[in-house]
Design a protein around this nucleic acid. Structure first.
Lengths: 228, 228
DNA sequence: CGTGCAGTTGAGCAAATTCAACGCTTGTGG
DNA sequence: CCACAAGCGTTGAATTTGCTCAACTGCACG
C-alpha cells in the first residue's frame, strides 16, 4: 500500500488533475498561509511524504483525513496522529520528516513551501508565533498520548472515542474515517483487540455501533471515567 | 513523595541556600538565556513545578537529573522525560504545565522567567529560533517514544539503555540517576518487569549490571537490534 | 532490588461474517 | 434504438469472533 506520489509533486508535476492555485475562498484560519499554497488531492492510501524525505513543505488538510506513521524494521506500524480538515501536519523540527504521511481516504491538502513561510515568519511575529504554537500543540498531543503506555485496552479505546468525538461536529457521535487497523496502530493494540473492545463497550451500553464507522456515545460519563 | 517546593521559589524565597545569580561560567549553550536566570538547588524528589501550575518559567538542568510526570486519577504515574545537565525543560505550549517536574536526586537548575525571554525572542530571531527548535526537539523525542506502544518489554528496556548511553559521556556504559521505579514509569512497565528484563539481558551477555545503577553495554549491536 | 508463583490481559491464528466497491443486467422514458 | 438509473450479484477487503498461549502484572518474601 501507500504508493509514493509526492516525488512527482515535488518535480512540479501534480499527479491529480484537481490542483488549484491560491484558493481565496479557503481562509478559515490564518490569512498568509492559505495564500502561499497549492491544493493537491491524494487517493486513498497514497503517500503524501515519506519517512526520511526532506521536510520542505507544510500541509493543511482541506478535506478527508490523513495519518502519519512510522514502520519498524520488522514491519510493525505506529501511527503518529490523525489529521482532520483544518489540521496542520508535516510540522517537525528537523530538515527531514521522522514520520511518513498517507491519505486515509481520498484527501485534499493544502501544500505550502516551508522556505518562504519561514522567511515570512522572520518578518511577521504573528506567523512565527502561530508556527511555534502549532508545534507546541503537537507536542502536547504527543505527550498526552504517552499516557497510553499505562492504560488498558478499554481505557485506550474509550479515550480514543472521546478524542475523536471532541474533534467532530457532534459531541455524542463519531464518524470514523479510519479502519480498525488504523485505530489499532494508533493505540498500540491489535485490530482484534480494538474490535473486541468496541463490542464489549457496546454490550455494556456505553456505545452503539450504528455502522462500523459510525459510533454513538450512549454514556459519555462512563466513557470519560474509563478514558481519562 | 515530591514535596512541593516551587511556590516558595515563586514568591522569591528560594528554599535552598545555594542560589547564584547570572552564572557567567555556565554558558555552554547559548548566551542570553544563561544571563537571565537564577540557580536553584532542589532536594531529592522535591517538586520543581506542579502539573497544573502556570508555566511562567523555563528551566535548564545544571547538575543532577530531573523527571517530568503525570499522575492518573487512580494513582498510576507516567514519566514524560528525563532531563540531564544541559537539557531544557518546562517548555510547553500552553500557559499551564501539563506535567509536573521533580528532582530525581539533588539537582540544581537554572530558572528563567518566561515573559522577558519571550520579549527577547520578539527582537532576537536567534533566540526565537532556539526556543522553537527546543520545542521541536522535544516533540521529536515524544513522538519517537510513541513507538514504545508497539514494543515488547525487552525492546523497551534495550532502547532505554541505548538512549541513556547516547546521552552519557561514555557510549558503552551508563550511570542511571533514576530508580527502577522511574524506569518502569518511563517505559510503561512495572518495576518487576524492568528488573527481570535487566537480569535477562545480563544472562544473555548483552549487558552487565556492574552495580544496580551502573550498567555496562557488553553487546551494543545486539542491543540495537532489539531496541530499534 | 531481585525473584518465585499465580493470575490477567492482550496477542496471534484461523474461521465466520459483514461490508463495500465494481461491473453487469434490466427496466423505463425519451 | 439510445441514455440513464436502479437493481443484482460477484468479489475482495474489513470486521468480528472463538480458542489458545506467551508476556506482563501483582503479590509475597528474601
Amino acid at each position: 500500500m501507500a504508493t509514493s506520489v509526492l516525488p512527482l509533486a515535488f518535480a512540479g508535476l501534480p499527479i491529480e488533475p484537481r490542483v488549484t492555485r491560491g484558493a481565496p475562498e479557503q481562509r478559515d484560519v490564518a490569512g498568509p498561509i492559505e495564500l502561499m499554497g497549492a491544493r493537491i488531492t491524494f487517493a486513498r492510501n497514497a503517500e503524501i511524504y515519506g519517512e526520511t524525505e526532506p521536510a520542505d513543505y507544510l500541509y493543511k488538510v482541506v478535506s478527508g483525513a490523513v495519518r502519519t506513521c512510522k514502520v519498524t524494521s520488522d514491519g510493525r506500524r505506529q501511527i503518529g496522529g490523525f489529521y482532520l480538515p483544518g489540521d496542520i501536519f508535516g510540522l517537525e523540527g528537523g530538515a527531514f520528516h521522522s514520520f511518513s504521511a498517507e491519505a486515509i481516504g481520498e484527501a485534499t491538502v493544502l501544500v505550502v513551501r516551508r522556505k518562504p513561510l519561514m522567511a515570512l515568519a522572520e518578518r511577521d511575529g504573528d506567523v512565527a508565533r502561530q508556527l511555534w504554537a502549532s508545534t507546541a500543540a503537537e507536542l502536547n498531543r504527543a505527550q498526552g498520548r504517552l499516557l497510553l503506555l499505562i492504560k488498558s485496552a478499554q481505557e485506550r479505546v474509550a479515550g480514543f472515542l472521546l478524542e475523536m468525538a471532541g474533534r467532530s461536529p457532534r459531541q455524542d457521535a463519531v464518524d470514523l474515517p479510519m479502519t480498525r487497523q488504523d485505530i489499532g496502530e494508533y493505540l498500540g493494540l491489535t485490530i482484534e483487540t480494538v474490535s473486541r473492545t468496541l463490542t464489549s463497550l457496546q454490550e455494556t451500553a456505553l456505545i452503539e455501533l450504528a455502522t462500523t464507522r459510525h459510533i454513538v456515545l450512549r454514556n459519555r460519563d462512563a466513557l470519560e471515567q474509563l478514558g481519562n
